[in-house]
Design a protein around this nucleic acid. Structure first.
Lengths: 182, 182
DNA sequence: TCCTACATGTAATAAGTTACATGATTAC
DNA sequence: GTAATCATGTAACTTATTACATGTAGGA
């Protein structure tokens, strides 16, 4: 899975501009994919060059021109080929978990601050996803709702552990071991 | 956070070879970081060149020579600098969530198969992490245990959603909406 | 006045992956 | 005999990021 596959997937739903695509990345897909404009526009350019999508320029009043891209039959075939390709393992990389892992070389105050930051960020992302879920739950397909559920449950679990971690680090820590919550 | 920072962090705990480092990636750190030999060895080479670590060659019987790397004072300073640097946002990219998201363009059988594969992979990873937790819970620092807890709770939440998703997709799906589990 | 939203794109750079290259030992 | 483990490394390639470059309209 790479930027091109996601772009094709989004264009399966109807014509969109690069800007539209980036918006969807940021909101609905943010729990499993994100990419900058620097990857969206080159992806669109390449897809157009290989005949997967076609461009149409739409003049707008008061706003810059919009380049609407529409998926072609070839593009749809390409997307089906992606779905038939072997599934890739998830990729997760976390700076905050690294800092926790090597936590004994740093200060507890830093750790608490990072956990608090991480928690509020995740609370924000969770709320955003919940809004998407509530708004589209009657329109989205069951598997799409499962994908969003996955993101929400994930964030909830993370928030919970982070809160427990903060509580523990803020406590006197009386040299008892961190007990695994049930 | 990049490979170099993680390598330095691991060498803070004592001298290690490139092979040792890759092993630790795969087991203890696998829930938030992984990288191939193609990143470990170049990282070590660069760190040695810049004086962060020093190499010592250890002859072994029946096995290839081992290159043990030890962190220097400069390296420790560099690691502290990493800890003082601004924290990076997590990076998560998931092929299976993308396929669920665009699930209506594929077959339900594929989705179920992918979810089942994803589940067993996560069950394996969870068991691996639980073993690490059990084995080292009396030796690891509290923040390190929080980091492992994070991974375990995360996998558990993911497994649960995936199971619910499978159940739903396997049911008759009587056109009822996917209900958000409490 | 300044920030945000709208809107498109390129160039230089960074970071890491995959495949290649080698080779002994041990367990099944 | 063949797969896995131990052990080190390089070169070509892929992919995406960051910073740059430009400009309008509307709201606070």
């Amino acid at each position: 899975m790479q930027a091109k596959d996601i772009v094709l997937g989004l264009l399966m739903q109807g014509p969109k501009s690069g800007y539209d695509i980036k918006q969807e990345y940021e909101i609905e897909l943010s729990h499993f994919f994100d990419a900058s404009y620097g990857s969206v526009y080159p992806a669109l350019k390449q897809l157009e060059k290989s005949g997967m999508i076609v461009k149409e320029t739409v003049m707008q009043e008061g706003k810059p021109d919009k380049h609407l891209f529409t998926i072609t039959d070839l593009g749809e075939q390409q997307f089906q080929q992606y779905l038939a390709s072997p599934i890739q393992a998830d990729f997760y990389r976390s700076d905050i978990l690294a800092r926790l892992y090597f936590g004994k070389y740093g200060s507890t105050d830093d750790l608490i601050r990072w956990l608090e930051e991480g928690m509020s960020e995740r609370i924000r992302l969770l709320q955003q996803l919940e809004e998407v879920y509530e708004e589209y739950k009657t329109n989205f397909s069951p598997p799409r709702l499962i994908s969003i559920q996955f993101g929400m449950q994930d964030y909830q679990a993370q928030i919970k552990v982070m809160q427990q971690g903060i509580d523990y680090l803020k406590s006197d820590q009386g040299h008892e071991f961190w007990e695994m919550p049930s």
